[in-house]
Design a protein around this nucleic acid. Structure first.
Length: 922
RNA sequence: GGGGGGCUAGCUCAGUUGGUUAGAGCGCCUGCCUUACACGCAGGAGGCCGUCGGUUCGAACCCGACGCCCCCCA
């Protein structure tokens, strides 16, 4: 078995990606008897490009999926695309350069479907080139008929429970998207504003008002002051006149009027903000609507009818000024002026009275909190974010959207009595615009219906992904999948996706949607102007979100995938813990390439030693020498396997990752391989039993390491597995094998201690040579170990001598100059004595190097260029010195006399053109 | 204003139930071509673990206060 000298990821990775697909390696088998591990994969919103943050979060999920699969679970790992709803409409408008209203509903929906198709392909291509072990046959798109069915079924189920109601009430409205939205779709933004100061006239004098929204004057219905505010208490109960519009409104008291803000007098309009909505309801005020659904003022605004909010604001301020009614204007900086905007488009949100469908949430807070407690959150503190959101709910969930591209609301209005008619569950999915109710109105028997033209909120569908996965209430339903084992997602959508999913699950099943929620952090960039300032003695860091426009190229997954192996990118993404933001640094990704090279080279070496049929089973313990190197090394592997599983059990993949990396690099490569070289290179010195034990251990440890790496590095491990192990192991992919378990490694604490002690001795020897700037091959005449250690490591003498290049191990300190403490071994002592002859030659060679360079320069040769080939050791002069023998002979002679106390040297060319130096004692 | 997280080596991060000289990778410096790998090996420099107080025989870790950064909510 020979591997090429280097690993070519550009051909290997796509090869296995195609093969996994063709072989359906990751297919979910619903007939399997194995325990199911089901993953509620986030269906990414089709809203544009995927960025490095998606890559990071989704790759972590894939590592978890692969781990669970190799643990022996039947893994259900689907991929969805959340392509219905407003985000897709906005994307389509941008992609096609159209407006939904201008092309019409049907045509626009067709365009949306085309755009979805395009982006689904793009997304899928990216996921596949990252090597995700998704079962692509389980893919779903939230606009598909099956998802429509589940989503509409959810609607009907909520309606049957009385959880749904339809009401014409003040609700959140986006004037750009011309639809109602839900509380979760709000995004608070700091924006600059201006307080305009003007007065309302009352019989008791003028009441000063400060308002940021003077355009709402025509909608003014009351004025509020704080009941305890001494300045204005006397006005309570009087009536005030609205300037310009000359409306008379009552002056009322309410604790929500903040005496500190503005003048302390607040005008209440229909509807300036959430407080206005509350006041209107609580004080039973009339409503005086001046704003239309299109964001323009209506007849209530008189001459200003038809103008936009911005235009009206300017016009009214001008008018107030011209009447000399404005007493002051004060700018408010963005950080003090927070406005609610629509998260999808940034438009400031208005409150309008419209007729919408609502899911009743506010009476279910306790149940939602209870289920939030039942879910295991990783990290645990993410539960608090969920709890805070639920406790802070103010609005029921408005689920109807006055848009085109979405799951239609399964409802018609009876033309006669006005009540809603719904389809039967088995008729789903329906499109009320085309389909008709199958029966007359239940209430009045009417047969004339008007279809509900609205569609459902995107989240109304994406909140039923567990039900979609389980094919809820259909012939193909798979009840084993729910509650699902794991919901992986980022922390920014706890209030939306996690929350709505829990809510739906609560109402439909009374249970949690998933047992565990693994919440990942974000990838952030280090600011260009990273400043480490000393402020009050503490370090100030600056980091910020990745901007989709500005940083697109630097953080583009496509570019990274063209530059680095997917395995490297994966390795990097698994370096951060759940819940923590990670700062992107391309160098960190590049560092992974070293690991791949190391893995490839070490494997190449091991396989060259092991032959065509490398061992892969755990070596039988009774064939291994007691207190010997194999048992010691395997006990370390056992230790690693334990730590690895413990880490993954808590979704701490980064801890598992560093365990296997450390084991492989430091224990396997730096120590065990160095030892087995002695066994294989000097086979004649070791009996068959020793050789067999070493081979079995090397093969097994390699195969174990490959499997432990496999969840992180699926491509390179598959390549090696297929070429070296598949035939004998049998499983058609490494990803269908089982991970090594601690039970298969029956080694004890004393073995582990031996291993650590041997490493400590070897490290000391290496350090000792390094201190003197000698090669690690510099021979030692004696390696001294204190008696107790020497006795304990008796079974390791061969290893130690070979790896440290020692001629002997002794516990006699007499001929050792210096004895030092053995790190990590209480009472252990170690010492070294170089082989003087070899040392002299080394020094001679080192001295010669300078002379050789000078000589070569003298001879007109490029000394620097050849320096790398001028290694001189063990008495040999390199071929590159040929032609200047005389010069070197002379130099050598001087050095020989100086270092070796030799009187003569004899310099002879040997076979192969090298020079052989022989030193004659004086 | 409320809540959450973070602050450990130049950079990115680990630090298990509080227990000798606080670790890794990258970067830097010194050496070393060692019959897998120079994308390597060995060694080294570099940290009053954000600040201050408390508990303790003992604190990066527990408690309190404060500072700064990020996020969520109002």
């Amino acid at each position: 078995m020979d591997l090429e000298a280097s690993y070519d990821f550009k051909t290997v990775e796509p090869h296995w990606q195609r093969w996994w697909l063709a072989e359906r390696v990751y297919a979910y088998d619903r007939a399997s008897q194995k325990q199911v591990f089901s993953i509620d994969t986030p269906p990414p919103t089709v809203s544009g490009k995927l960025h490095i943050g998606h890559v990071s979060s989704y790759t972590q999920t894939d590592a978890i999926a692969r781990y669970q699969r190799m643990l022996g679970r039947e893994v259900f790992y689907p991929m969805g695309y959340d392509d219905n709803g407003l985000p897709t409409e906005i994307l389509t408008e941008r992609e096609c350069g159209v407006k939904a209203e201008s092309v019409g509903r049907e045509r626009f929906n067709e365009l949306c479907l085309e755009v979805c198709e395009k982006f689904r392909a793009l997304y899928r291509g990216l996921w596949q080139s990252l090597g995700f072990s998704v079962d692509w046959d389980q893919s779903y798109s939230t606009i598909s008929p099956e998802c429509r069915r589940v989503s509409q079924l959810s609607f009907l189920d909520l309606a049957a429970q009385g959880r749904l109601y339809r009401a014409a009430t003040a609700s959140l409205w986006c004037t750009r998207c011309r639809t109602s939205i839900a509380q979760a779709e709000l995004e608070a933004q700091g924006r600059p504003g201006v307080f305009h100061y003007f007065s309302f006239k009352t019989p008791l004098g003028e009441l000063p008002i400060a308002s940021t929204r003077p355009e709402l004057l025509p909608a003014c219905v009351a004025v509020f002051v704080h009941p305890e505010d001494a300045r204005f208490r006397r006005f309570i109960g009087t009536r005030a006149r609205v300037p310009i519009f000359d409306i008379e409104v009552p002056v009322r008291a309410d604790a929500k009027a903040d005496p500190e803000k503005g003048t302390g007098v607040v005008m209440c309009c229909t509807y300036g903000d959430a407080t206005d909505v509350a006041w209107t309801r609580e004080h039973q005020l009339v409503s005086r609507v001046c704003l239309g659904e299109d964001g323009r003022l209506n007849a209530q605004a008189g001459v200003l009818a038809g103008s936009t909010i911005a235009e009206a604001r300017v016009a009214i301020v001008e008018r107030l000024k011209s009447l000399a009614l404005i007493s002051a204007q004060k700018e408010i900086p963005p950080e003090q002026h927070v406005v609610n905007t629509h998260e999808r488009c940034g438009t400031e949100i208005e409150y309008l009275e419209t007729r919408q469908w609502f899911v009743r949430l506010l009476d279910a807070k306790e149940e939602l909190l209870r289920l939030g407690e039942k879910v295991r959150w990783f990290p645990a503190h993410m539960k608090v974010r969920y709890r805070n959101w639920v406790e802070g709910l103010h609005w029921d969930w408005a689920v109807s959207r006055q848009r085109y591209f979405g799951v239609p609301i399964p409802a018609w209005d009876c033309a006669r009595c006005g009540s809603a008619a719904h389809p039967e569950p088995e008729e789903l999915p329906v499109n009320p615009l085309k389909d008709r109710p199958s029966r007359p109105c239940r209430k009045c028997g009417g047969t004339e219906f008007t279809p509900d033209k609205d569609v459902l909120d995107t989240w109304a569908t994406s909140s039923v992904t567990p039900q979609i996965c389980a094919k809820w209430r259909s012939a193909g339903a798979d009840a084993r999948l729910v509650p699902m084992s794991l919901r992986p997602q980022a922390h920014d959508i706890i209030r939306t996706w996690a929350f709505y999913t829990i809510a739906k699950s609560a109402f439909h099943s009374g249970d949690v949607p998933w047992r565990d929620a693994a919440i990942s952090g974000h990838v952030v960039k280090k600011d260009a102007q990273v400043e480490i300032q000393q402020v009050a003695g503490s370090k100030v860091e600056r980091k910020s979100k990745i901007s989709k426009s500005k940083d697109a190229d630097r953080f583009s997954p496509q570019r990274l995938l063209e530059t680095y192996p997917a395995d490297c990118i994966r390795w990097w993404t698994c370096s951060s813990r759940l819940g923590l933001d990670v700062i992107f640094d391309e160098k960190e990704i590049a560092a992974g390439e070293k690991l791949l090279t190391k893995l490839w080279n070490a494997t190449r070496f091991a396989l060259s030693m092991l032959g065509e049929a490398p061992p892969f089973l755990p070596p039988e313990a009774n064939k291994l020498q007691e207190n010997g190197p194999e048992r010691a090394f395997l006990s370390r592997l056992k230790n690693v396997v334990q730590l690895y599983h413990a880490a993954f059990a808590e979704y701490e993949f980064s801890a598992a990752r560093s365990e296997i990396e450390r084991f492989f690099w430091s224990d396997f490569c730096d120590h065990y391989i160095e030892y087995v070289k002695e066994i294989f290179y000097k086979a004649e010195k070791h009996d068959a039993g020793q050789r067999e034990a070493a081979a079995a251990t090397l093969g097994y440890a390699l195969y174990a390491a490959l499997r432990l790496f496999a969840p992180f590095l699926p491509h390179i491990t598959e390549e090696i597995y297929q070429r070296a192990f598949r035939t004998r192991v049998g499983a058609r992919s490494i990803h269908l094998t089982r991970l090594p378990m601690p039970e298969e490694l029956p080694y004890g604490e004393s073995d582990l201690r031996n291993w650590e002690d041997v490493k400590s001795v070897v490290n000391h020897a290496r350090g000792h040579k390094s201190q003197f700037n000698y090669s690690l091959r510099q021979p030692l005449r004696v390696l001294y170990l204190s008696s107790e250690i020497k006795a304990r490591l008796a079974g390791f003498e061969g290893v130690l001598c070979a790896v440290t290049a020692s001629a002997a191990i002794s516990d006699n300190p007499h001929d050792i100059d210096q004895v030092e403490e053995l790190k990590g071994i209480p009472g252990g002592r170690i010492g070294f004595a170089f082989d003087e002859k070899a040392l002299a030659v080394t020094r001679l060679a080192a001295g010669l190097r300078g002379i050789a360079q000078a000589g070569k320069q003298a001879a007109g040769l490029k000394a620097n260029a050849a320096a790398g080939t001028m290694a001189i050791y063990a008495g040999k002069l390199s071929q590159s010195l040929a032609g200047t023998e005389e010069l070197f002979a002379a130099a050598l002679k001087v050095r020989a006399v100086q270092f070796l106390d030799a009187s003569e040297i004899d310099l002879q060319p040997s076979a192969g053109g090298e020079l052989q130096a022989r030193f004659l004692p004086s």
